[in-house]
Design a protein around this nucleic acid. Structure first.
Lengths: 218, 218
DNA sequence: TCTTATAATGAATTTATATTCATTTTGTGA
DNA sequence: TCACAAAATGAATATAAATTCATTATAAGA
């Protein structure tokens, strides 16, 4: 793979770091482009952002974007898949930890809130596209992939509920729907907090209380 | 308003019906265009539908569309506002009926489900655009208007919860967040049912049980 | 039937923007 | 410092779709 023409020190460096400085620089530039695109897409939506705008925001020429990404759609796809992977892996990990199911669900909520807060741009973009399970600006292929990621997380959450039911922690209702309900409820809070964080700060304790405790008395 | 040139029978007819046959025909054509556009928009999204396509589906010429709507955006706007109004007025009415707050919330859920089922295309479109509170293909003006419609409904629902709390029907938690939680939870079920109605039929009793009853035991 | 007004048509125009590629710039090793 | 390869550039091109408007068709009254 490494051409003979490469100088010795370069070849040595590559053995060590795997990536040469040049390659690291390229990767960084790529990331800059992705970041600029993310900002613009999440502000204005896929179709209302031009490659020119992305180029300007990233401080490159349009042509350069095409050195890094085949076309606009690829660029977009990569951003969405990034988000989906980030969320899926973080939430899956939480749900795979062993232990008290009640605590696990609470941890899931905490983690989800944290992810939302720390990735507001990504969240806006992701849910604008795949949010209600009604995607529209992306090809069906990608849409399907995104939905499957969401399904995977809900399924894992359902497993936790199921174990919790077996242990008599939770009321014996269909665990899939419990997961759906819990996730949907927390989404409502998170979106509301996303819109206006000052007026509607996200209170995970309140979410838990509404979900887990009795609302209708007697 | 009625020009003198109009013949007698026409003028008489207009006194009675308010609208002449011609006007009724125009209105019907307008509705046909809106219907065709709704179908296409909800299938493929605003930006992936051309005026040509709408014209073909509605069986008119492109130019004709512009006789009825100033431009593509107006056409779109009208469809979204239709939905928003339909939902807001139906749900507001339910929530203004006097009586038992527990029953009112249940009625709200029933009505919402019915609206979803009977207007799947509109729902898909509406939530793809304004769903997560993250609109993107529309101008900010319309986006704000749509969000305010949603807020109004949530506020009304919150009032019902508030009254219910006063009467000790419900656990005394912030009524706004109770409303948000109930609505968010039901949305999750409805979207899931929208995606795959056979595998996930919407069960309002289950939604109520999860929301109102205790989930975490002891 | 003829005339006129009203409405519908769709080819042509305009506009917008994704993508390309000939040219320029930059960085590297000799 | 120079020559060369690699990378970046952005004006030019291609493409697609929104909108217009001169022309044609339709309907209504005389």
């Amino acid at each position: 793979m490494i051409p003979d023409s490469y100088s010795l020190h370069k070849r040595l460096a590559m053995k060590k770091n795997k990536l040469s400085r040049k390659e690291r620089e390229q990767l960084q530039r790529r990331a800059l482009i992705l970041q600029a695109a993310l900002e613009l897409f999440s502000e204005k939506g896929y179709h209302n952002v031009t490659m020119q705008e992305i180029a300007i925001r990233a401080e490159f020429a349009v042509g350069t974007l095409y050195k890094f990404f085949k076309n606009k759609e690829e660029l977009y796809k990569e951003i969405l898949m990034q988000t989906a992977n980030l969320f899926r892996s973080a939430l899956s990990n939480v749900l795979e930890e062993k232990g008290d199911e009640y605590a696990q669900v609470k941890k899931y909520l905490k983690t989800k809130c944290k992810l939302f807060m720390e990735n507001i741009l990504l969240v806006r973009l992701y849910f604008a596209e795949a949010g209600a399970g009604v995607s529209i600006s992306v090809k069906r292929e990608l849409e399907t992939e995104l939905r499957s990621f969401y399904e995977q997380v809900i399924q894992k959450l359902a497993c936790v509920f199921e174990k919790g039911i077996q242990k008599k922690f939770f009321r014996p209702l269909d665990p899939y729907y419990l997961a759906l309900a819990f996730d949907g409820m927390s989404n409502a809070f998170l979106f509301s907090g996303l819109e206006d964080p000052d007026r509607h700060p996200v209170d995970t304790n309140l979410i838990e209380e509404i979900f887990f405790e009795q609302i209708y008395l007697t």
